[in-house]
Structures are given as C-alpha cells and as structure tokens.
Design a protein around this nucleic acid. Structure first.
Lengths: 133, 133
DNA sequence: CCTTGAATCTGTAGCCACTACAGGTTCTAG
DNA sequence: CTAGAACCTGTAGTGGCTACAGATTCAAGG
C-alpha cells in the first residue's frame, strides 16, 4: 500500500505484458527497479512514464533500438531538431513499406481477378503464373 | 556439365541465396535433391521451377506455411477455387496491414508537423506527447 | 597429374521482439 | 494459518532467414 506498483499493476496500467516488462529490463531498456524483501519488483511513477513512452513509440512502429535512441534524446533534454530527424526518417521508412505493400496488393488483386474468370476447377492461372518462367 | 545445376547456379537462376535454399530443404519446403559422388547437391528443372514458385509467392507476401499450402494445392491439381480463397484471405490481410501503417504514418506526420513549429531547441512536443498521460 | 582457390558441405549460433513454459518462492485476503 | 494468486529465474521457442567455422570437393590452369 505504498507509492509503488507491482509488475502486474504496471502491466495493467500500461498495457505492456508482464513478460515483456521483464524482457525490457533484461535488455536494458527499462532500469532495474527497487525490490521488496522477497525480491518482487516495485515500480514508481518514473518507470510508469518511461514504459508508457516505450509502448507509444512502439505503437508508432519504432524499433527497440530507435526507442532507445529516443529515450536517450529525451533524457538528455531533447533538442527537438534531432528528434524530428529521427521521426522523419522513420516516417519515410513507413511510407516505403506502405508503397511496397500497395504494389503487392495490386499484384494479388490482379491475380485473383484472373482466378474469378475460370469456370470451375480448371488449371489455376494464379498457380500457373507463379510457376511460369 | 550435365542437365543439373549446382546450388550456386540455382541461386543465381532464382535469386534465392544459397543458405536459404539449404534452409528450405531443411524445413522440408524443397525436396532433398540428388547428390554428386562428393556430396554436392544437383538440382534439375523441377526444383528450379519449384524454387521460383516459392520465391514469387514469398514476394507476394505469403508466409512459408502458406507457400507450403499453395504448393500442396498446386501438386494436387489445384482446384482454382481453393487457391483463390487463400489468395483472397491473404489479400485481406495485406490490406489490413496497409491500413494500419497508414494510420501510423498519419500519427507520425502529425507529430513531426508539431515539431516543425518549435523555434530552435525547446522541449520537444513529440517527446512530450509520448510521455504524456 | 598436381595444385590452387572457388564453391560447397555440415552444424551451430545469431537476429528481432517477444511469448511460453517449468518449477520454485512470496504475497495477500479471508 | 492457509489457500491460491501473483511473482520469481532461467530457458527455449517463434519466423525467416543470415552468418559464421572448419572441413571437403570441384573445375581450371600449368
């Protein structure tokens, strides 16, 4: 009943799974928290904020390494310009992935459209296409 | 100099890396090929066609399990309807991923836009946002 | 025929970001 | 005091490769 959260409470508060929290600690993304007599983790406000930050950055698609970088910038006073550079680079990457997937969806749609026109169970043009030279 | 390809030649012919070809064999996606006296793999037309099929299906974003399924269908005469079902399901998945990424790009664009408006090196609104409750 | 060096062989470990156990200990409510 | 929920550590698995290390085999040139 103090000012701390158990790992389960922190998990509920952030939406990050218990195992993942321990994983983040293991890889040094989260600091080692205080412990109870018996060895249970006790988290405080700072850790809650940090973990929320991590979760949101992950939701924006940053890799853990990028999150690490972002946290370093944040901890170091965060010159906005540098953060923006990272975010923009990331955005560019995301847009490229979207473009890739769109091309892919295009191809798939095209292939399935060809499938539609085959009466019942002839040789599938999609399969044929994948095999063709 | 017969009718077979070495693993390197197959790799060049398909664009699939040598290690990946061996990996596909290990997981049973490619059949175990003939071997030379000394133990080197000897691939023939059938394997070339199969590997090309795999590569193209992978380019369309199918998982290896889906590729396996597709190959089973292809080997079994391929009733076009079933193939179409798989392809459509896959297409739906791809479109969902595109939608997810677009939402993500939207958020990122929004955040970086807010960054732009900060003069020089104030507290970064992007970082702030990720920390906020 | 012999040598050189490129290609190939097997087996194992690493990557990312978790997730899922197993087998034990601690905490908390009744 | 006790039951059982929550927690602990450590290890292994996921997908789809990729990257070694250290040994062997192959093809071409002399």
């Amino acid at each position: 009943m103090g000012q701390w959260l158990s790992i389960g409470a922190l998990s509920r508060a952030t939406g990050v799974k218990v195992e993942t929290i321990r994983y983040y600690e293991r890889i040094g993304l989260m600091p080692a928290p205080l412990r109870s007599e018996g060895g249970h983790r006790q988290f405080r406000e700072a850790e809650l904020r940090r973990l929320r930050f991590i979760r949101r950055a992950r939701e924006l698609g940053f890799t853990l390494d990028e999150v690490r970088e972002l946290l370093k910038l944040a901890d170091g006073g965060a010159p906005c310009a540098e953060v923006e550079v990272m975010a923009r680079a990331h955005l560019t990457g995301v847009r490229e992935r979207i473009a890739d997937l769109q091309r892919l969806a295009e191809s798939l749609a095209h292939l399935t459209r060809r499938c539609e026109r085959v009466d019942t169970s002839a040789v599938c043009p999609l399969i044929d296409d994948l095999f063709g030279d």
